[in-house]
């Protein structure tokens, strides 16, 4: 029998990850208002579009990271993947090569391949995600250096440059459109499809999912594959955006992607988090750094702030869980 007490707590606890995403939405709005008051530059349309543009790459990584986190893992290698696929794209889009098919497909597939390798090692070989992805982080970064000869690659073709650099209606960068499409697609997958539901089930309790006939290993592997795929897409776009690629591009991006998910209400234990949370989380990060840039705070301090925020939010999560048991 359920006591009155249990029912009361029920309501209070219901949909905590929704709640955190909602709270963070208010935080985002609050930050926006405060920054607008502090600096008139901030709320200009140009700057707002700029914020979205700055969010896009990290936002795309966050949609992939959300999958890995949902099934109970995370991916430390995704920043290196951005670097590798960026180099691959640049190698195929420079030196007078005008074709788009080869650089786009190869760089995206390279990311997918890294994701599949991570996924197979984690899901089927049962190596802890931290170890696997820390290892591939180094391996993939090494590959990026080898392929590029350790030097940045310049001179990306004009047509390639337009992939991310083009503007819709002369105003909205394609990059922002890609991000919105990918985020909404991921939202649909997580919220509406059986596959998405199964990611939550596997992250919530893998053993119960297994007994219920779910192919747990495949779901885990594919979540890492999606994460790698997003790394590939992000690298491909990054090369277009900066019209160049450097082997160290993407260093530390995994931290931003993880931070976006955690801020947006994804639990590092897996199985909990709403799709719009990762968007809000990614926006908060870029509003924060954009605002701090405008206010003239050096980026070194921003790094400290970012790290602290992750720890604090996970701390709040852990504490609220402890209270509930």
């Amino acid at each position: 029998m359920m006591s009155m007490n249990e029912m009361g707590q029920n309501q209070a606890r219901k949909g905590r990850s929704n709640l955190q995403a909602l709270v963070m939405l208010f935080v985002l709005i609050g930050m926006f208002i405060v920054l607008s008051l502090l600096s008139p530059m901030f709320s200009r349309v140009g700057n707002v579009i700029n914020i979205f543009k700055q969010t896009a790459i990290n936002g795309i990584l966050a949609t992939g990271m959300a999958c890995a986190i949902l099934v109970g893992g995370f991916d430390m290698s995704v920043g290196s993947t951005v670097g590798l696929s960026g180099i691959i794209a640049a190698l195929m889009a420079t030196g007078g090569q005008e074709g788009l098919f080869l650089p786009v497909v190869c760089s995206v597939l390279a990311g997918l391949l890294v994701g599949v390798i991570n996924g197979v090692a984690v899901a089927y070989m049962k190596v802890p995600a931290f170890v696997v992805t820390l290892g591939t982080q180094s391996i993939v970064r090494g590959l990026a250096y080898i392929l590029s000869g350790g030097r940045p690659i310049f001179g990306v073709s004009e047509s390639y440059e337009k992939i991310a650099g083009g503007l819709l209606f002369g105003k909205i960068p394609y990059l922002v459109i890609y991000y919105i499409v990918i985020a909404l697609l991921m939202g649909f997958i997580l919220q509406c499809t059986v596959y998405g539901r199964r990611m939550y089930a596997v992250g919530g309790n893998a053993e119960a999912a297994r007994v219920s006939g779910i192919n747990v290993e495949f779901i885990q592997m594919s979540a890492f594959a999606i994460c790698g795929l997003m790394g590939g897409i992000a690298g491909m776009l990054s090369t277009s955006r900066t019209v160049s690629a450097a082997p160290l591009t993407g260093e530390g991006y995994e931290l931003d992607a993880i931070a976006s998910c955690v801020i947006g209400g994804f639990s590092m234990d897996g199985g909990a988090g709403k799709w719009y949370g990762m968007i809000i989380g990614a926006l908060i990060l870029s509003v924060m750094s954009n605002g701090l840039d405008i206010l003239g705070v050096a980026s070194y301090y921003q790094r400290i702030l970012k790290g602290a925020i992750i720890i604090i939010i996970v701390l709040i999560d852990v504490r609220s869980k402890r209270k509930r048991t």
Partner: peptide, 19 residues
């Protein structure tokens, strides 16, 4: 341990097998 996804709603648990 092997029956429920405790952090998911009843609905998602009840339809886990048959979704």
């Amino acid at each position: 341990v092997t029956g429920l996804n405790l952090i998911a709603p009843l609905r998602e648990n009840i339809t886990l097998v048959t979704v």
